[in-house]
Design a protein around this nucleic acid. Structure first.
Lengths: 148, 148
DNA sequence: TGAAAAGTGGTGAAAAGTGGGGAAAATTTT
DNA sequence: AAAATTTTCCCCACTTTTCACCACTTTTCA
């Protein structure tokens, strides 16, 4: 399970060094083969390949006639890119993905359980601020009895 | 169960010495492995690892499409950091967490049952004042029949 | 008052981050 | 079609940071 934020930088060749604490798990679960795709929140998602497959299958099994669903299929499957870690534990971020998430040099890598997220630094800070802004009336039912 | 307020200080390397009275329990329940994450109230939460796991699982099982839920997942899981007590019973507070909670040298550690909270000293004092400021109309139904 | 435990700070080795160079492949031009 | 130029990608080496361990000071309790 991946957790925690890491501040890192894309180098001149658009390579991203995966933090060392994740490498062992990524090598053992899928030999360093990852899928990078986009998220509607304008960040990138990084899945170990085995974790991605069922998601893609699920997406493809949904109705092609609902516009929202169709949009999601195009967004997620359409932008998915296969990458592999190099000897130094880095992955290459393709230009279209970099552009989509507005990534410049400084980026933030966020562990989210079975996947990782890559954020433009300012976007991530905004995201955190928004999450802190919880108003009483907005709490969804599934969170009602939730205790930290 | 953790109780009580302790005033302590982060050293130059951002290490926090866990009070000796908690160490025994922390070593026996999880061999000193803890999870530190953020709380929406701008303090940090410290869980023994076994106590954290079900919370993370619950969070990850919720819908990825509700924005508030997604924000909480990102906030809590995204900021969670695995730490281990060193030989002297200290844990390292990662820079992003320190920044989030506005921790400088002097901090307050608060026992809260199964978890601990780490506060910036002034924030904690404000929190205490706020808690004293109870107005009759604000009492939620679940507290209605509550007796100290 | 002494001994033991807790608090505090420092140091060095190992690992992680970062950048560059060179070979192979692909593409384009003559 | 061949050759040359460009681009991609793999590997190596250097620099920086991290963290585990050690030592000293202070406090507490018998």
């Amino acid at each position: 399970m991946f957790r925690g934020v890491t501040q890192l930088s894309l180098d001149a060749k658009s390579r991203l060094a995966i933090p060392a604490r994740y490498r062992g798990e990524l090598m053992s679960c899928c030999d360093g083969r990852l899928i990078v795709t986009v998220d509607p929140s304008k960040c990138l998602l990084v899945y170990p390949q085995p974790a991605w497959e069922p998601i893609e299958e699920k997406l493809n099994s949904l109705s092609s006639f609902d516009p929202l669903t169709r949009g999601l299929q195009r967004l997620l499957v359409g932008n998915a890119s296969d990458v592999e870690m190099d000897g130094a534990g880095r992955i290459l971020i393709a230009a279209p993905l970099r552009k989509f998430a507005g990534l410049s040099k400084e980026v933030v890598l966020v562990g989210q359980g079975s996947k990782l997220e890559i954020w433009n630094e300012e976007q991530w800070n905004l995201q955190v601020e928004d999450a802190l802004d919880i108003k009483g009336g907005d709490i969804p039912p599934e969170l009602a009895g939730f205790t930290l």
